[in-house]
Nucleic acid binder design. Sequence first.
DNA 1: CCCTGATTCGC
DNA 2: GCGAATCAGG
Length: 179
Amino acid sequence: MEAGLSWTDERVALLRRLWEDGQSASKIAAQLGGVTRNAVIGKVHRLGLAGRAKTGEDGQAPVRAQPALEIETAIAVVEAEAPEPVAIVTHRPAPEFPMPTPAQAAPAEAVSLAVSQRVTIMDLRESMCRWPLGDPTTPEFRFCGARSITGLPYCTHHAEIAYQPAAERKRDRRVAGFR
DNA sequence: CCCTGATTCGC
DNA sequence: GCGAATCAGG
């Protein structure tokens, strides 16, 4: 799952997406896997993407919620419909977070009021919480799906977890992350 | 010393 | 085309 890493269309697409989204070269490299930040920067220049809307370019990471990384990665993979296995490196967003109880076969009428339904990307709507659940590479991958806070991508529960001071977030990277 | 992107240049 | 080494800087 590590061999044959190169700038495939999928990887370039993900690179573009993350770079234009303001992610740093090192973070992008970590997500792509198999490349260094130098490689990412070099590729960015060759693609003519250098110089972007730099919001937090002065210091560390841009103002962005951690889960956004996984979401973008998952979406990018889905959109690309990668013909070959794609290695996904995720960042665990928080130490621990109690997951809502498994949604049982609830009547459609009850969905809107349910605490969490857990939906696939196909059923994810604008007003639904986009907090990722599970491994994006597996069919079991779901999004929270609960009613999101207006203007935010997450429900109240996950927004609390997502939006934390960067300084308090622990640097804890690992392969595959959510539960 | 941590990090950032930019550039050079041998491969 | 690629990316390590290097540079310049926050």
